[in-house]
Design a protein around this nucleic acid. Sequence first.
DNA 1: CTGAAAGCGCTTACAG
DNA 2: CTGAAAGCGCTTACAG
Lengths: 338, 338
Amino acid sequence: MAAPRRPRQRGVKLSDVAAVAGVSLSTASKVLSGTTERISEETRIRVREAAARLDFRPNALAQSFALGRSDTIGVLTYRAASTFTGPVLVGVVLELGANRQAALVYDEDILGRRQITESIRRLQARQIDGLIVVGDGHEHLSPSITHEFQVPVTYAFAASESPEDVVFLPDNFEAGRIATRHLIERGRTRIAHITADSTAISVQLREKGMLAELAAAGLQQAAPTRYGAWSQAWGAEATEGLLASGVPVDAIFCGNDHMALGALDVLRRRGVRVPEDIAIVGVDNWEGIVIDQGIRRLTTVDMELQKLGRLAARDVMSGERSVGEQRVAPTLIVGPSS
Amino acid sequence: MAAPRRPRQRGVKLSDVAAVAGVSLSTASKVLSGTTERISEETRIRVREAAARLDFRPNALAQSFALGRSDTIGVLTYRAASTFTGPVLVGVVLELGANRQAALVYDEDILGRRQITESIRRLQARQIDGLIVVGDGHEHLSPSITHEFQVPVTYAFAASESPEDVVFLPDNFEAGRIATRHLIERGRTRIAHITADSTAISVQLREKGMLAELAAAGLQQAAPTRYGAWSQAWGAEATEGLLASGVPVDAIFCGNDHMALGALDVLRRRGVRVPEDIAIVGVDNWEGIVIDQGIRRLTTVDMELQKLGRLAARDVMSGERSVGEQRVAPTLIVGPSS
DNA sequence: CTGAAAGCGCTTACAG
DNA sequence: CTGAAAGCGCTTACAG
């Protein structure tokens, strides 16, 4: 980039304020920085008035330099443009901005240590006040780079190798629970589960959550879990299979919204009433699936990824940080399918 | 926030490098900043070696302060969390980061001038090197705030009130053109158009693009444009109507993917082969509609919003900026529906 | 309660 | 070709 040196924006500086207020630079600084040092009320007022009159705004660059803090948080992302990472990143930068922190975002192949080392060096040189590592969910373990930094490091939507790290992850177990609880509350007792491949951690957790909630209500699955893919096609196929099996079912908890839409489609076509005969719940609150021109068509569980980003950002900026894995609670969003 | 003053990270500084290299601070600085000033090759090497040996990394805070540049770009968003703005923002922050620029993001109600004034003041105080205003597309005119800043201001996905501003917008006209051209190239001659309400600017532009391309090929619309809503339901309804009208049609250009999916559904159900009998093209490349578990089901036009964000970011960082409205070319993505 | 002075770590005219 | 010195605009011990 090599941004050209810009003629310095000759604005009002603190020394101008001090001069107008008739006090010293240090006194002016103390008043405006809101220090607790005792300064006469009269002086305080004079300085504040001068500052207001001159429309003084402290040069953030000088402040940063003097204080050794950058008001910038590093963000290391792994495939930031991908489906689920985007909302996390948006949450991160918005929350940082709301607290006047800039975000320095490096999108790297976190697993390729080579490049990441260079990014780490650059982030350190930038004197970042904290770092947020944004991963891509449960499926990959991110290497822990916490020890590379003197500043707080928080992992968002990333599972770190180290249990000592501050990690924010969506609560997939809870997602399974609240979906199931909702169905039970609606009087459903014969609940089936259609989901993606059983090797995915999120699949396992959502299923466990469902089972826990069923057990708590003294219920069992209406049919064995059907594992497949995250697709609408699979949702449709699995639903066909379920109907064909003849097992009575009054609700289907689907691993995501795509499957739920596939299920909805099949049921409608077969003349099964939704939700009267069979209720459906999906997961993701995936706009474009779940909403059609402002009209919601599915009950779903929102994993609150943007909020997750916000929480991680808040954490890295805060003094009291809590070590370990933080599970971000998902939200049930009730639509016409349940 | 009031970040606590951190004990300064006592790292290696330039004066250390100078001492080890046996040269003055200024000489060391000149060598490492890559100045063009003539300095003996021998000295250059000595300094570089010392820097490498000590693992010297210039303190970015001090550099910023000395140079009067923050390496931070302000980003003023309007409803950043909304559907289409998210990708633009992601593009912006990734492109900035790739060029070592931090993003200071303020999400405000741009139309409410009150708050925005405060944001402008803060951004100025932060000595941002440039500003990107991210809007929500064609439908609202953003007030021009360019004159409030001494630094470059670029509008991304926002129509500014001032024609002097640098504005990046998706090219909806071109979207209509490439969709239509594609259908024509596939031998279609009886092309119909289903879209949202005619008051939306993007609707108008896409339709005009289609008409221009039809005209260029000596064709006319197979049927009058059907205006409705951005929904799958409308796509289905309009398609039913089209079929019922009895007008022969061999392609439908849909205003977005939702409508296209609705159309696809109806045609399939009616036993109409897609694309053999009727081809379909949507717009948005909206994941979750267009792709089902990695399998594409629709031909569509990607409006390249993330790229738009990247281009705007590149623009604001660059020396040669081009005034006026920049149209970002959309991309045709061919799927099985055409 | 107030102020003079040092310091944060660079860059860059300017003099040699 | 090299270096001493001033300067960027704040904050904060420290002395009064």
